[in-house]
């Protein structure tokens, strides 16, 4: 009596749970963004659109829920008779879904943002073509690095490449999710001492991901590199990102393939 595959169920369930978390996350970011808009109205500073604004926080958020993935779901699923393999495939699919969902929601909100600002005619300057690759508040206290590619292909500036923007946003935050998942799996399997090693691997992965997208490197550890950013065609960046995600996923699978479940 063969049951049908269980991973689609895992994927759907993990997506649903994390989607609810993500809605909370996006609400908070949206709130913060609205506050920023109000501040910028009163202080004349330049503001990045929501897609830019949410990008770096989304990365951190995805890193965090990636770390939680093993602890929150692996034990539960194996305890309920789901194989580690079905968990892995389901969790990976859910992660792709969550990354895409956040990107789509961020894009829709950005569209709404423009529409609302247009209609209300508020005196806000939204900058989506910053040349120096970073968004800075007027007093330089906040600086957010954004991938060039997203900047130069903002959905509203070049509406023809909105799909590309979405893809980039999705790949960027998905990379952070799998990096978090790798850290979580490393800790789950080896405990905290060896777990630190996974943080080192993750830092390297984050640097690679940033280089792929031509982002200026923000991590102090990358100072030893002879260059601070490289320029790649978008297709190469995307392909590189997908390969990086694939390699990390492969690492997670190796770690969790026969992992002992914590009781």
């Amino acid at each position: 009596m063969k049951q049908k595959s269980i991973f689609p169920k895992v994927a759907f369930d993990m997506f649903s749970v994390q989607f609810i978390w993500s809605l909370w996350f996006i609400s908070f970011i949206l709130l913060a963004h609205i506050v920023m808009i109000v501040v910028s109205i009163n202080s004349d500073s330049v503001l990045g659109e929501f897609l830019f604004f949410s990008h770096s926080s989304s990365k951190v958020y995805m890193l965090v829920i990636g770390i939680i993935s093993s602890y929150a779901f692996l034990t539960f699923y194996v305890n309920h008779g789901v194989t580690r393999k079905d968990y892995f495939i389901g969790a990976a699919l859910a992660a792709v879904g969550i990354a895409a969902a956040i990107a789509i929601i961020a894009a829709v909100l950005t569209g709404l943002e423009y529409a609302v600002l247009e209609i209300t005619n508020l005196p806000v300057t939204i900058n989506n073509s910053l040349a120096d690759n970073s968004i800075e508040s007027s007093d330089n206290s906040i600086s957010i690095f954004v991938p060039k590619a997203i900047l130069s292909s903002s959905i509203l500036v070049h509406s023809s490449s909105w799909l590309l923007s979405l893809l980039m946003y999705t790949l960027n935050i998905l990379t952070l999710y799998v990096i978090g998942w790798l850290i979580g799996s490393g800790y789950y399997r080896f405990g905290w001492v060896i777990g630190f090693g996974f943080i080192a691997i993750s830092l390297v992965s984050i640097i690679i991901a940033d280089l792929l997208w031509g982002t200026e490197l923000g991590e102090p550890l990358s100072n030893w590199l002879p260059f601070s950013s490289i320029s790649l065609p978008v297709s190469v960046s995307a392909a590189g990102s997908i390969i990086l995600i694939g390699v990390i996923l492969w690492g997670i699978r190796l770690l969790t393939k026969r992992i002992t479940i914590k009781m």
């Binding site: 269980i6 008779g81 789901v82 194989t83 079905d86």
Partner: peptide
């Protein structure tokens, strides 16, 4: 939840580890 160091477990004649039909 884990694998043995030595020896075997058979449930309905099969190794249950990572065997979806048995683990469920």
């Amino acid at each position: 939840f884990r694998e043995s160091t030595k020896g075997s477990i058979k449930i309905t004649g099969e190794n249950p580890f990572e065997n979806a039909d048995i683990m469920q």
